[in-house]
């Protein structure tokens, strides 16, 4: 599903990623772990088509991202990807239902159709009762579950999650992670999660360690995690 080869990225003179290569299979849950500043979030954004690598290549579902225009990347993100970031990043002025329906409307569904499916997605993460509430008024856990619904509602090929539970307590964190992994498995969606949390990393099929911008082979790398 994701093929990354020698991905490099720099902010000015600072080299954040120095040639990372990895593959992620459909339906696979992969945890990116590593110390702060190691480059794991940057790697996630490069893989997710948000940042453009300064070297190497990334392909999602067989589509090479290098050389794509911003508009094409936008279309690809809307079509094949979902995102869950640390603070939800929802549109505060819109209701939970409206937030979750936007990715579907971007695929061309009518508003009614989109909201019907969005309501189902909210139900899948257990927040259907909050559908009409503005997301600015929701708690952090609730916002993250709406973000999960939004990320999964259009059945993307891959979901990128950057510290999705970082701002939550352990109970809410577990709940959000459970939603994410369950839906990913159910929809055969690849899930790439950046986390510090060992518990979350432990739920992944595979963990990839990142240190100083390269893959850390010292981490139980490339090995499926025993359940």
């Amino acid at each position: 599903m994701i093929e990354a080869r020698d991905v490099a990225f720099s902010y000015g003179d600072a080299e954040i990623l120095r040639g990372v290569s990895l593959d992620v299979n459909p339906g696979e849950v992969v945890a990116l772990v590593g110390p702060s500043g190691s480059g794991k979030s940057t790697l996630l954004y490069c893989l997710g088509g948000i940042l453009r690598p300064s070297g190497g290549s990334v392909a999602i579902d067989g589509v090479d991202l290098s050389g794509m225009s911003d508009d094409d990347l936008t279309v690809l993100r809307a079509d094949k990807c979902g995102y869950v970031l640390q603070f939800g990043r929802l549109v505060g002025e819109l209701s939970a239902l409206e937030n979750a329906s936007i990715p579907l409307r971007l695929t061309g569904l009518s508003r009614k159709q989109a909201e019907r499916k969005a309501a189902d997605a909210l139900a899948e993460v257990g927040v259907e009762h909050l559908a009409r509430r503005k997301t600015a008024s929701l708690s952090g856990g609730e916002q993250q579950r709406v973000a999960v619904a939004r990320a999964m509602v259009h059945r993307p090929k891959v979901v990128f999650a950057d510290e999705p539970t970082g701002a939550l307590d352990s109970a809410n964190g577990r709940l959000v992670m459970e939603c994410l992994t369950t839906l990913a498995k159910a929809n055969d969606t690849a899930l790439l999660v950046v986390t510090h949390d060992e518990g979350i990393a432990g739920r992944a099929d595979r963990r990839i360690g990142i240190r100083d911008g390269i893959v850390d082979t010292g981490v139980a790398a490339f090995q499926p995690v025993a359940r």
Binding site: T74, A78, D79, V91, L106
Partner: peptide, 13 residues
């Protein structure tokens, strides 16, 4: 923030 959120879900610049 709103614009960023919209861009995240696939709206173009």
């Amino acid at each position: 923030r709103r614009l960023a959120a919209l861009r995240l879900v696939g709206l173009s610049d």
